[in-house]
């Protein structure tokens, strides 16, 4: 199958280049650790406040960090493809008979694997700090990181290739990222928010994904929140992959 050959070639090349920049991999790992150690202790205090959802503070906090890792880890990869486009690498690959889907999916696969490794380190550190959940909850968390990371990496590559300039891409990412972060209850649960803010956040799919993962971390696999969050995550990856493929194919239109 030429698709899998192409996917593997694009993936291994991208992975090799990532591993050759250990500093970036390390910085990527450091970020969730900083959240855990510098923000986690505050949350332990806040967990005593009325209105805080059930579960202990780590069961609330770690799902949020995992979702954040997936979204933001994926969202920024578009910078990389702008650099690749500028150095002629994208055109060089587009002019080969390689599958267009493989050209983008191979890169996304690299991003997903990097993110899942980061998530494993995050979960390991959280365990050390006091997180106690079932192995199935942890696996679900990693799957969620992979799904979100893949969806956002696809979208980010599409946006990067459509915009083709770091100066244009950065504000788009920020414009998108901040409301998502604030309205998703990633850092603090939305149950602490005033009524109007809760209603606004209901329209943010990422809030439901965070809540689904929190329910899973409580051991409540059967709750409707889990179903809603999972459906939304699957929808996101479908939309992301579709947009990413379309933009990649449109490069030669």
């Amino acid at each position: 199958m030429t698709f899998f050959n192409d996917l593997w070639v694009v993936f291994t090349r991208a992975m090799r280049l990532s591993l050759r920049q250990p500093l970036w991999v390390a910085i990527g790992l450091l970020q969730p650790i900083l959240y855990l150690t510098l923000f986690g202790p505050i949350l332990e205090q806040v967990a005593q406040t009325p209105g805080f959802p059930p579960g202990d503070s780590w069961q609330i906090f770690v799902p949020g960090l995992l979702v954040q890792l997936g979204i933001f880890g994926g969202l920024f990869v578009g910078f990389g493809i702008i650099a690749e486009w500028r150095t002629g690498v994208i055109d060089r690959m587009l002019v080969t008979p390689a599958s267009r889907t493989a050209l983008i999916a191979g890169r996304v696969l690299r991003d997903v694997i990097v993110l899942v490794v980061q998530a494993m380190i995050l979960v390991g550190a959280a365990w050390f700090l006091g997180l106690r959940v079932s192995i199935w909850a942890l696996l679900a968390g990693l799957v969620m990181v992979a799904l979100l990371g893949a969806a956002f990496a696809f979208i980010s590559y599409a946006a990067g290739l459509a915009i083709k300039s770091e100066d244009g891409f950065a504000p788009v990412v920020n414009f998108f990222a901040l409301p998502v972060l604030l309205l998703s209850g990633i850092l603090l649960p939305m149950t602490l928010a005033p009524r109007w803010l809760q209603i606004v956040s209901d329209f943010n799919p990422f809030k439901h994904i965070v809540e689904a993962l929190r329910a899973i971390f409580r051991g409540d696999f059967g709750s409707p929140e889990v179903l809603l969050g999972s459906v939304l995550a699957v929808l996101l990856i479908i939309i992301g992959a579709w947009v990413g493929n379309r933009v990649f194919a449109a490069q030669t239109k």
Binding site: R16, G88, V89, V95, T96
Partner: peptide, 30 residues
């Protein structure tokens, strides 16, 4: 695409890739 070569004015390789790696990975796309 199978039958032509194209050398862009923008280049074709990543700065921190090794020349041999880029050549082999490019060839494997064919």
């Amino acid at each position: 695409r199978r039958r032509i070569g194209y050398v862009s004015q923008a280049g074709s390789t990543a700065s921190n890739a090794l020349a041999g790696e880029e050549i082999v990975s490019h060839a494997r796309l064919y």
